[in-house]
């Protein structure tokens, strides 16, 4: 019988699931698009994972991370729910134990994590603006009609410099269009965009930080070799892109779940067959005060499983076991 841990990272752009055995070997990893429907994505992902696992596999624990981590935890029953910074830090330390810097660029977030002596020492995340993250690259690839997978390789073909403004996604896009109308090569424009993103990242997040090698580049955008090269040119040293760069958050939550289950001795995971359950979400605007919180009601197989979104706790604290119709 195989014993495994599951790590789930529900991000804005992708939903990742990682299967790890007790010796920290990655047995399987899955990267699917969230497409704005995290519940659907998780169900599809979990079914795919189940189909690939042997019948007698036992799941010892499950961890969730990503901006949809609480939703995923409610759906699947997680042993540990952790923020992305910690999850990415743990995963990177497991891959390169002496890592000093992590560059992580995801769908909506970009982060820099500095580690010293094996602990997270400092971090920064992009502020309110999501310029220079995966979703922006996605949009540009779509606009240019290029599959995102080929974006990086195209950038490498560039022969001359085209400077694109990287401070703001809106400016970057108009700059790109402007350069394209001037007749510049698409490769050069794409390369310019990769450089703009790397430059913006370093100016914005790397500002005043001591970016010491070894540097790991992870998150969905790490698959883009054009940006990796741009970082290497700007930083002047090699950058490591780990084999499972796109799913490092999920790997981190696997490792954290393993740690947690070792402490508690049992898992809260509801089982792989939960993928066949029917999940439903209804939301309403609470009218009890002028905050008008948007409360979400989460149903598993037509039964109310959780509620969240209220500031005061009148909905989320109420015993779920009670018939909610009485309260509504």
């Amino acid at each position: 019988m195989k014993k495994v841990y599951l790590g789930v990272d529900v991000g804005s752009v992708s939903t990742n699931i990682v299967v790890m055995d007790s010796n920290k070997n990655i047995l399987d990893n899955l990267y699917i698009r969230t497409k704005g429907k995290p519940i659907e994505a998780l169900k599809i992902g979990l079914r795919q994972t189940r189909n690939k696992l042997d019948k007698d596999t036992k799941v010892l624990g499950l961890g969730t991370t990503g901006s949809g981590r609480h939703l995923a935890s409610t759906m699947l029953g997680a042993d540990i729910v952790k923020n992305e910074i910690t999850a990415h830090g743990v995963a990177a330390l497991n891959t390169v134990p002496d890592v000093n810097t992590i560059i992580e660029i995801g769908g909506q977030d970009s982060k820099i994590i500095l580690l010293r002596d094996g602990i997270v020492y400092d971090f920064a995340m992009n502020t309110v603006c999501a310029a220079g993250t995966g979703s922006f690259l996605d949009r540009q690839a779509e606009r240019l009609g290029i599959p995102i997978q080929e974006f990086g390789n195209l950038a490498l073909k560039s022969k001359s410099q085209v400077r694109i403004a990287g401070r703001c996604a809106v400016f970057a896009e108009s700059d790109m269009i402007h350069k394209q109308q001037l007749g510049h090569n698409q490769e050069d424009i794409i390369n310019g965009l990769c450089e703009a993103m790397a430059r913006n990242y370093l100016n914005n997040l790397g500002k005043g930080k001591d970016i010491k090698p070894p540097v790991i580049f992870q998150g969905g955008v790490a698959a883009n070799i054009g940006i990796k090269k741009a970082f290497e040119r700007l930083l002047g040293h090699e950058i490591i892109v780990p084999r499972f760069a796109g799913v490092m958050g999920a790997i981190g939550s696997c490792l954290l779940a393993r740690e947690e289950v070792r402490k508690t001795g049992k898992t809260k995971f509801l089982g792989l067959d939960i993928a066949d359950s029917n999940f439903n979400v209804k939301s309403f605007e609470c009218e009890n005060c002028s905050n008008m919180c948007e409360v979400v009601k989460f149903y598993r197989d037509e039964k109310l499983a959780a509620r969240w979104g209220d500031k005061c706790g009148r909905w989320s604290n109420v015993q779920i076991a009670k018939d909610d119709e009485k309260l509504a």
Binding site: S67, K82, N83, E84, I85, T86, D109, D117, G118, I119, V120, Y121, D122, F123, M125, V128
Partner: peptide
């Protein structure tokens, strides 16, 4: 966004303490 940042910040403090 803010919850993630606060959580990660607290994790960092605790991690350092433990270290």
């Amino acid at each position: 966004g803010i919850n993630t940042r606060i959580e990660a910040f607290v994790d960092m403090i605790r991690w350092r303490e433990d270290h």
